[in-house]
Write a protein that binds this DNA or RNA. Structure first.
Length: 425
DNA sequence: ATCTGAGTGTTGAACGTGTG
DNA sequence: CACACGTTCAACACTCAGAT
C-alpha cells in the first residue's frame, strides 16, 4: 500500500526538511531561473516581508500586507515573485490531503488562530476572532485603513434586478450589471411570500422550496436567466465595439467586468436549454467514455483512469480506431436528426438568432456535407464500403459488438430525455 | 468541442455586523 | 446613516489529465 504511487499527492514518508518539501511538491523550473535555491530565497524573503502582526491574520489579508518590493531580488521583479508565489500556492492547495486539512482544523481550534476556516469548525472561535480583531484594529489603525483604502472590487454599474425589464444605462453608457442566475431569480420571486418567516431563515426556506421544484420548473428559471444573459452580452458587446482594444480593457477593468469567464464559453455560443449536445468528431472521445466506465473499479481516481485510457487509445490498431470512427459517424447522424427536431420547436426569430450565433452548425443539417469534411481526416484503414455508403447506411443492419449495443441504449435514453425537454417549450 | 469527475472560484440575492 | 464586507445558499464556469 505504502509503495503504491497511485495517489496523486506526493507524500512525505518521514520527517522532512524544507528542501524536501520544495523538491516534491513545488514545481522547480530551472529554465526561468526558479531554481531550488531561488525558491528558498523567495520563501525566506516573504517571511520577513510583512508586518509581524499579520502572522496571525487570515491568508488573504496577510497576503495583501506582503511588500513585494522588499521580497524581490535579482533577477526577479516584484511581479515575478508575486506570480511565482501564486503558482506555488496553487500547487500546494491541490496537494493537501484530507489528513492535513483535519490536522490544520485541529490546530485552528487548539491555537485559536485567526483563521477564517476555523469559524466553520467551531463557531465559538468566531467570537474570539472578533475580540482579537477589535484589539488588532485599535493597535494598528493605519494597517486597517490601508486595507480599506485599496478598493479592488468592482463598483457595481447598477443595482437593479433583472426582473425589472428594460434598465436604464448608467452615465458611462454601460449596460446594467449581468443578470442573476436562475436560482437567484427564484429567490427574488419568493420574497413577497416570506411574511411571518424570520429573515434569518430566508435562505434555508428558499433552498427547501427550490429542492421541491420539478426539473421543468427549474429549467424555466434557467431559460429566463439565459435570455437575460444573452440580452446583457449583446448590449455589452454593442457598447464596447466602438472602443479600441486598449480602451475596452481599461473600461472593463475600471468597472470590474470580468469577461474572461464569460468569454470562453460565452452565453452567445453556449448551448440553449433543450438543444442537443453536439458529439465530438473524434473516436477517442467515445473510446474514453466507454473505458472510463469499464475501468471505474480498477482505477477509481478519475484523472489516473483518464490518463490510462488515453494511453490505451494510443496503443489501439488503426482497425480498432476505425470502429470508433464509425461510431462517430453514427452519432453525427443522430445529432443531425435531433438538431432538426429541436429547431422545429423554435420560433423563426429564435432560429435566425441561432444560425447567426452558430453558423458552423449548419453543416449538421446535411449529412452529406458532414461526410465530406470528415473524410479529409479519415484514418488510413478503410473497409471495402464506399464513403457514400458509410453515411447513407442508416437503415442497414450492421454487426454490433457489446459497446455498440450499450451506446444504442444510451442514445435511446437521450432521445427520451430530449422529448421531455421539448415539452417545456 | 467532447469524454470524466473532483476541486475551486464566481455569481446572484438579502440580511447582519462593524466602522467612520 | 452610508458603506464595506461577511454569511448563506445553489448554480454554473472553469481547470486538470490526453486525444482528435
Amino acid at each position: 500500500m505504502s509503495g503504491n504511487s497511485g495517489s496523486v499527492r506526493v507524500t512525505e514518508p518521514e520527517e522532512s526538511d524544507e528542501s524536501t518539501d520544495l523538491d516534491e511538491s513545488i514545481p522547480i523550473d530551472e529554465s526561468t531561473g526558479w531554481t531550488k535555491e531561488n525558491l528558498q530565497k523567495l520563501l525566506a524573503a516573504m517571511k520577513t516581508s510583512y508586518p509581524e502582526e499579520y502572522g496571525d491574520i487570515a491568508y488573504p489579508t496577510g497576503l495583501k500586507a506582503v511588500d513585494w518590493e522588499k521580497v524581490a531580488f535579482p533577477p526577479f521583479s516584484p511581479e515575478a515573485c508575486q506570480n511565482k508565489w501564486r503558482k506555488i500556492f496553487h500547487e500546494m492547495r491541490k496537494l493537501r490531503t484530507l489528513a492535513e486539512l483535519i490536522d490544520e482544523a485541529e490546530e485552528s481550534i487548539t491555537n485559536l488562530v485567526l483563521n477564517k476556516k476555523a469559524r466553520y469548525v467551531d463557531r465559538l472561535a468566531s467570537e474570539e476572532h472578533k475580540r482579537q480583531m477589535k484589539v488588532f484594529r485599535k493597535q494598528h489603525p493605519v494597517l486597517v485603513q490601508q486595507k480599506k483604502s485599496t478598493p479592488q472590487k468592482r463598483k457595481r454599474v447598477s443595482a437593479v434586478t433583472p426582473n425589472q425589464g428594460e434598465q436604464p444605462k448608467d452615465a458611462a453608457g454601460l449596460p446594467p450589471k449581468p443578470p442573476c442566475n436562475g436560482y437567484s431569480i427564484f429567490c427574488q420571486e419568493q420574497l413577497p411570500t416570506m411574511a411571518g418567516i424570520s429573515s434569518r431563515t430566508y435562505m434555508s426556506v428558499w433552498a427547501e422550496r427550490w429542492k421541491g421544484l420539478t426539473k421543468r420548473e427549474k429549467d424555466a428559471y434557467s431559460i429566463q436567466h439565459t435570455k437575460l444573459q444573452r440580452k446583457y452580452m449583446k448590449a455589452l458587446n454593442e457598447y464596447v465595439k466602438s472602443f479600441s482594444e486598449e480602451e475596452k480593457q481599461r473600461l472593463l477593468n475600471e468597472h470590474g467586468i470580468k469577461v474572461a469567464m464569460v468569454n470562453k464559453r460565452s452565453p452567445l455560443t453556449k448551448r440553449l436549454p433543450g438543444e442537443p449536445k453536439m458529439p465530438s468528431r473524434s473516436g477517442n472521445v467515445i473510446f474514453c467514455q466507454d473505458q472510463m466506465e469499464l475501468m471505474r473499479e480498477e482505477l477509481p481516481n478519475a484523472r489516473e483512469r483518464f490518463r490510462k485510457v488515453n494511453q490505451m487509445w494510443k496503443e489501439l490498431s488503426n482497425e480498432e480506431k476505425f470502429q470508433y470512427k464509425e461510431k462517430v459517424n453514427k452519432k453525427l447522424k443522430k445529432y443531425s436528426k435531433k438538431l432538426q427536431k429541436w429547431l422545429k420547436t423554435l420560433t423563426q426569430e429564435d432560429q435566425d438568432n441561432y444560425w447567426e450565433r452558430n453558423p458552423t452548425k449548419r453543416q449538421y443539417l446535411n449529412p452529406n456535407s458532414l461526410k465530406r469534411k470528415s473524410s479529409k481526416s479519415e484514418i488510413v484503414y478503410r473497409p471495402s464500403d464506399s464513403e457514400d455508403e458509410e453515411i447513407e447506411v442508416s437503415n442497414r443492419d450492421e454487426p454490433k459488438n457489446n459497446l455498440e449495443e450499450e451506446e444504442e441504449e444510451e442514445e435511446d435514453e437521450d432521445d427520451k430525455e430530449d422529448v421531455v425537454m421539448f415539452d417545456i417549450y
